[in-house]
Nucleic acid binder design. Structure first.
Lengths: 371, 371
DNA sequence: CTGAAAGCGCTTACAG
DNA sequence: CTGAAAGCGCTTACAG
């Protein structure tokens, strides 16, 4: 049991009104209503309320009136399989969701918004239930991999404002969403690497139907084709949950002949594994191999530190909250439909110009190699 | 603007009652009241409510009755200086608070509890205000470094259940709190290192008045004294925010003669810095120097991977929520007062038996050294 | 076991 | 600009 003394009696509006010699309606208007009240009395009532320590009940407030400005409640819907946390014994959040959630919480805090995490196997009916019982005033859905257009329709039907995070529909750009511009990031990255002389590159992403993963591949396709190096580049999908499979895919990449001179691993743990396997093979990074990632939690601490794009996921979470807040009139209205946050490239130490030798180590060096 | 169709009219209790041919009071009792209702009608009303899609209003629920079981709102109070997040432009959460917050969110989600982050320079008045306006039903305070006994008194006065995380008062063990048993962790660690032959050890902690830091030093004092090696051990406090100072302190530790054979750096970024400086000096880890940390986010990815105690901060957050939930009758009552979560030691690769040479490298080896 | 009423703490038409 | 009343959607005494 935690400490709990007798709760102090709360000050009600009635008492404030009485102290001010006014009716409740008057006091209410003076304090928060839009009804005309003379500045003098308004000021007087404010003062009295403050002195008495009056705090309006949020429940009464939202029950009366037609949903006046009160505290807003935001539901953050997590999709089912995020893994079990052995610490809490409950659900755990993935490395991708974690920073988004932090951005959500922080921005919500600044805007006085309550947040509730909810977990529904069935998003559609769940959200409608939430809406019906005052359980939430809006919904934000981070990284809902399996989200379908039907789910979005149900979301619309619920009447609740909503926004999708890191999930979008190319077929319907009007769906409110905030995503990282990973396609743009990949395009920029391929240009950067190409400029540094790289021709043989590899992309390693997650399997699954995620729209974000699709973006990586779309950007990759565009960029490598644009630079005329599509034939010497390879894009691999692997399940990061299956460590053995992931490590085998990495080994395969490293043992290829000719070996890629640059590998882009979206997942930073995979990038770390590339560093480890490269070290085991005597391949030096970045001299013989450049490695880039799209995460930035452990990147500064690997050997060498991993260069990469920071997806700014906490910013995405924060922007999601702002989109909702704009609907509520809490902040100025900004973007509509699909909104894109550009990733930010951070150069650490794992990227260097392509090695001039482009064949297996046994070959001689050809300094004039152009492929 | 996000999508927002005309909100569907909600089903009210009155309509359920009418459909069932009962009064509102009857229907209410059948659905949720403790008042006697025949099983037959209860079942019938339930069915009708479900068919109609009835969802009780949480606002009405908590406004009427005397605070019946409805959704609970938990305020998480963050202390002021947690740093500014350049991503969100708002406050950011420290590496210590982040996992606690995640544990809180996750466990709260499972128990259907809303969470709101609040940030108050003045904890006491803030909490009282929260309580008065229905802004929260309980408060959890993670890592409130500057928390005083006066603040705790104010917390008690608010009438809200509360729990402190990672902060305790030895002078008053009845204050509800959940902390990591860092003193116990240090004692265990010193025993482990002593058994591995280490005699010259160093502890690196944060400056400041934190009760947790005090625990580290208490455990260190106890353990090194108990093993009779207090004279050859050193405990250093440094501000981790001041990188230059931190790095200088680490350099000082590494350049000492004789050099410590084991360094315990609570902060893992500091431990990483030790690895980096050791590598620069040609000191091999773990052969010539063992390094241990008390965090575990980047630890698996450094070179070599850092051994260390996992403080299980997300578990601490989850337990904090459970303590509150027990107050609300949501879960069975458990611990009272100060509750301790033992850290878990994870051996990676940065710890080895002490090197037999105990003098500067220029000396000869004395295999019989007993210090 | 059941009906009809009062009331939770506010806000907002509706009259003056 | 101001008073007095109605009502938000529920629950809980209070009578039968």
């Amino acid at each position: 049991m935690t400490a709990r003394p007798p709760a102090r009696r709360r000050v009600r509006l009635k008492e404030v009104a009485k102290a001010a010699g006014l009716s409740e309606g008057q006091a209410s208007a003076a304090l928060s209503g839009y009804r005309g009240v003379s500045d003098a009395t308004r000021e007087r009532v404010r003062k009295i309320a403050a002195d008495l320590g009056y705090q309006p009940s949020e429940h009464a407030r939202s029950l009366s009136g037609r949903g006046r400005r009160t505290t807003h409640r935001l539901a953050v819907v997590l999709n089912a399989p995020t893994g079990v946390d052995r610490e809490t014994g409950g659900i755990a959040v993935t490395p991708f969701v974690s920073p988004m959630l932090e951005g959500i919480m922080l921005r919500a805090s600044e805007l006085d918004i309550d947040v509730r995490l909810v977990r529904w196997p069935d998003l559609a009916s769940g959200v409608i239930e939430l809406a019906a019982r005052d359980g939430a005033d809006a919904v934000v859905v981070p990284s809902f991999t399996g989200l379908s257009v039907d789910d979005v329709a149900a979301l619309r039907d619920s009447g609740l404002p909503f926004v999708l995070l890191n999930r979008h529909f190319v077929t319907d750009p009007t769906v409110p969403t905030v995503i990282a511009d990973v396609a743009g990031g990949i395009v920029e990255l391929v240009s950067r690497l190409t400029a540094a002389g790289h021709r043989r590159m590899a992309l390693l992403t997650e399997v699954g139907e995620s729209s974000v993963v699709a973006d990586y591949h779309r950007g990759w396709q565009e960029a490598t084709t644009g630079h005329g190096i599509a034939d010497s580049c390879v894009a691999t999908r692997v399940s990061h949950a299956d460590r053995a499979a992931r490590d085998a895919a990495i080994a395969d990449l490293l043992d290829r002949e000719p070996r890629p001179t640059a590998i882009v691993a979206v997942d930073e743990a995979a990038a770390h594994q590339i560093l480890a396997q490269a070290a085991a093979r005597g391949i030096t990074v970045p001299d013989q191999l450049s490695v880039v990632t799209f995460e930035s939690m452990i990147a500064p601490y690997t050997t060498p530190p991993l260069s990469g794009h920071d997806l700014r996921l906490s910013r995405i979470g924060a922007r999601g909250v702002e989109r909702i807040a704009a609907d509520w009139g809490l902040v100025p209205t900004g973007a509509e439909g699909t909104e894109t946050i550009p990733p930010r490239y951070v150069d650490r130490d794992s990227v260097a110009p392509a090695p001039t030798l482009h064949s297996p180590p046994t070959d001689t060096i050809d300094p004039n190699s152009k492929d």
